[in-house]
Write a protein that binds this DNA or RNA. Sequence first.
RNA 1: UGGGGUGUAGCCAAGCGGUAAGGCAACGGACUUUGGCUCCGUCACCGGAGGUUCGAAUCCUCCCGCCCCAGCCA
Length: 568
Amino acid sequence: MDEPTNPKPKSNFIRDIVDEHLRTGRFSRVHTRFPPEPNGYLHIGHAKSICLNFGLARDYNGLCNLRMDDTNPETEDIEYVNSIKEDVRWLGFDWEDREYYASDYYEKLYEFAVQLIKQGDAYVCDLSVDQVREYRGTVTTPGKDSPFRNRSVTENLDLFSRMRAGEFPDGAKTLRAKIDMASPNMLLRDPLMYRIRREHHYRRGDAWCLYPTYDWAHGQSDSIEGVTHSICTLEFEVHRPLYDWFLDRLGVHHPQQIEFARLNLSHTVLSKRRLLELVEGGFVSGWDDPRMPTMTGFRRRGYTPESIRSFADIIGIARDNSIVDAALLEMCVREHLNRMAPRVMAVLRPLKVVITNFPEGRVEEFEAVNNPEDASAGTRKVPFSRELWIEREDFMEDPPKKFFRLSPGREVRLRYAYFIKCEEVVKDPKTGEVTELRCTYDPATRGGDSPPDGRKVKATLHWVSASHAIEAEVRLYETLFTVRDPMDVPEGTDWKSLLNPKSLEVVRGAKLEPGLADARPESRWQFERMGYYCVDRRDSKPGALVFNRTVTLRDEWAKLVSSGRENK
RNA sequence: UGGGGUGUAGCCAAGCGGUAAGGCAACGGACUUUGGCUCCGUCACCGGAGGUUCGAAUCCUCCCGCCCCAGCCA
């Protein structure tokens, strides 16, 4: 049923490693986890990771946990954990009862730290932030030992417990791993494990004034949960020796960390920091603005979970940094929406058409197919009358050679209805703007069929009966940024200056066929010839419908125009 | 620069010594009551230079590009 969107898993280097582990007995099961920090909303890059981790667990009959890596009280918030949970669920994955928090491991982590102190593998350091930086050295020069590096175990134990007890001011002391200040790997130069920070934690309240660093918490959290494969992004590869060191010194379960390249999508930014900046700076309406690459943004825009999952499958997993073309994501939504979205007729920018030889007051109904890709979707009736709306861009007074639509003297088909011929163009005498088209119809073409004389037309237009139409607001979106890679800017240029001023266009007064009056929030439709649209889950109200354009249809005509070949 | 990664078509990405998968995009065509869908076709000598080999994208050497690490962020 859903095999088109969920094809057999593509093999990748991570699966190869897992297969090898299973074959050699390194592990006898597969247990992964998705470990976000609740300091922002999930974006499409996270979706890649979620699909990878949960997908692996699914395909290997294993488990995948959801764990909040909440080790920094300053930026984390319950709002974010709620959104994360909602987004993961919406994407279609289930962590069952395995909802974990690094903040639940604080006590255990503290015990681990005490163990390392006792082993002589960690020490309390009094160096200030600046001093620590200075002692660390640079990438080309070795660091030097902290003067506190050789404190006795007894003193370290005493100091550490007093740190926890709140005897020292913020930043006065840290707990550091005693590794190697001359290591070419900067992360091994006695990294910090704990900092004193009197900060209210959204879950632990004021229970702690000592907070573990991510580097100290992450590997142990995976170990505690029995994770076998800790999959993370490339930038953590240099951290792996550190995580391995902690795990080995502790002598606990040792997951295998595997790194892969994070996702970059063209024409947008994919970092929580920058997305936050867009939200806080008012450049977008919020985390769920339909232009945002967040999961909630895509959801509001009308993307389906299926299409995002299929995108994740298609892009693959590798180790080189890359920027995936947004067109690939669009292809994935179109592919799914084409199969499931019911067709409907909607005129975005209406132009009045009067059928002069059609009796006033007469209404006919035509049967329209709901979805040519799905016979079970059935048909519906659409009303037709003397006055209609058609798309403004479907008429040109002086058309280029390849324009097949309506123009003076030309005949086209109105979908499911009749052939009509443009007999007269009515204009506003002042502005010269076309205000109305007066056409005639051919009764022999009822239903849109070709007439007995075999006459053909080159175009079929969508339309809505003027007296039956309902109105709606339609929001049209384009890419958030004008350039493929907003991060690739000359020195001194603000990446936000590359935001696309046309990323949102609001169209009011669109005319829809009457059946759409009951369209439910989040329902997705194909407006024939115009694209896929979704009822806005936040702003749409009965009687005041708001639609978001999810994605346009492929458009050969638009391509001809933009490439200047319309006259060829 | 010390260390760690990575370079296959416009964009992703297979390939693991035997003579370049697939997808997207693009282009051409068929079909068409959505200029939609579908279908057919076209589109690479693998960062560079040497070397090993009967044979190399795959092995070796050197060079070049790009990414990550000098937060008490994750």
